[in-house]
Simulated assay, not measured.
Amino acid sequence: MKMLVALTGPLWLLVANDEALARPSRRTADVAYVAANAPDYDAERHRLDVYAPRRKAGASYPVVVFIHGGNWNSGRKEIYRFVGRRLAKQGVVAVVINYRLAPQVQVPAMANDCARAVRWTKEHIGEFGGDPGRIYLMGHSAGGGLAALLATNDALFAQLGLPQNPVRGVILNDPAGLNMYAYLQKKQYPDDSQYVVAFGTAPAGWRQVSPYYYLTPKSPPFLVFVGGETYGSIASSSEEFRQRLTELGHQPGFTVMKGKKHVPMVLQLYWKNNMIYRQLLPFVGAKPQPEHLGTAQGQP
């Protein structure tokens, strides 16, 4: 279906320009969120980076955990330094995570990794000025599907010993995988067989990792952003997700961004004044930060 593409090329160009954002934030890199003696510990993939504002706040900052995309088989946190830097510059403590990928593991293990990263955030983010009671998730592409799954499937945290789901809200950026149960039953695109590597061959397993089926009236609030020129499967599944949330009594934010394709939907997070940040910051309760000279200004 050509739902997803490699993201590394254009994103590395933004990493090269990261210095413009570095001064107003402090980065703590390569923090392990899984114990080294855990039987499934991966020294590279079980790591995260924390980006915190340098300016001390009178109260704790809201927290956004960013989950990268990459077709469930690629991507790493270093590519998304610009997201962490930009969030920190705007009064948010950002946590940008790695998680294991296919073919090493399938989506249930990826979700478990992401949940463990959120648990680490709940337990430790106060050390970086973040508020453990205000944890939000943000994900692009495959990371959006994982973010939605964590926010709606409380069992992912219960099995880690957390009695309550710590996620207070979700920002989805051109999300993929919201309903893989329906998608993989159709298999209407020639390359759809590739997804069994990450999702397996059993329809029951596809449903298990589809956040659409975990939505309830008590699900946390969502902000959903979809590219006006994105893949048809992402556009349609996002709209179905919005409709289901509305049926359950929610009023999700839902914005179609005219002219945006799939990769530019995450590239725009480099710039301060884009539409996503204009909605994200009040959504998470971030307070306006003082301007800093020499920082990049924005495209919508």
Results as ranks from 00 to 15, higher is better:
186 K>W: 12
34 V>R: 09
172 L>M: 13
134 R>K: 14
113 D>T: 11
213 Y>F: 15
159 Q>R: 15
184 L>I: 03
134 R>L: 00
280 L>Y: 04
38 A>T: 00
21 L>P: 00
142 A>N: 01
140 H>C: 05
226 V>G: 01
155 A>Q: 15
161 G>L: 11
51 Y>Q: 06
79 I>M: 12
131 D>R: 02
22 A>L: 12
143 G>E: 05
5 V>D: 14
282 P>M: 12
208 Q>D: 14
99 Y>W: 10
290 P>W: 12
252 P>N: 13
136 Y>R: 05
201 T>C: 07
215 L>R: 06
241 F>V: 00
276 I>V: 10
251 Q>R: 15
147 A>S: 12
13 L>W: 12
296 A>F: 13
164 Q>I: 03
35 A>P: 00
228 G>A: 08
145 G>F: 03
66 F>S: 02
31 V>D: 01
279 Q>T: 09
222 F>T: 00
126 G>A: 14
26 R>E: 14
298 G>R: 03
223 L>K: 04
204 A>W: 11
261 K>Q: 15
298 G>V: 11
107 V>T: 10
204 A>R: 11
234 I>S: 03
133 G>Y: 04
41 Y>G: 01
44 E>V: 10
191 D>T: 12
170 V>T: 06
276 I>Q: 13
209 V>D: 02
150 L>H: 07
212 Y>V: 03
200 G>I: 01
158 A>V: 15
190 P>W: 10
54 R>M: 11
18 D>Q: 13
150 L>P: 00
224 V>S: 01
183 Y>C: 08
244 R>K: 14
120 W>A: 02
242 R>I: 06
91 G>P: 01
258 K>V: 14
178 L>I: 07
232 G>N: 08
142 A>G: 08
218 K>P: 02
135 I>W: 03
190 P>K: 13
193 S>C: 08
109 A>N: 08
229 E>L: 14
90 Q>G: 06
90 Q>L: 09
66 F>K: 02
187 K>E: 15
9 G>R: 13
129 G>V: 08
26 R>C: 06
15 V>I: 08
183 Y>S: 01
31 V>Q: 03
178 L>T: 02
31 V>A: 00
271 W>P: 04
67 I>N: 02
247 E>M: 13
148 A>S: 12
145 G>K: 01
163 P>G: 06
1 M>F: 15
102 A>G: 08
128 F>S: 01
24 P>M: 13
125 I>C: 09
177 G>D: 04
5 V>G: 13
140 H>P: 04
285 G>H: 02
108 P>A: 13
243 Q>Y: 10
221 P>S: 02
101 L>S: 04
233 S>C: 03
106 Q>V: 09
139 G>R: 02
92 V>S: 01
130 G>H: 06
198 A>Q: 06
56 K>Y: 10
224 V>M: 09
293 L>E: 15
239 E>F: 07
298 G>Y: 07
115 A>E: 08
164 Q>R: 15
262 H>I: 06
133 G>A: 05
217 P>Y: 05
235 A>T: 10
67 I>S: 05
210 S>P: 01
1 M>R: 12
61 Y>F: 15
110 M>C: 09
161 G>A: 13
144 G>L: 05
227 G>D: 02
217 P>G: 04
48 L>V: 03
27 R>M: 13
137 L>Y: 10
9 G>V: 15
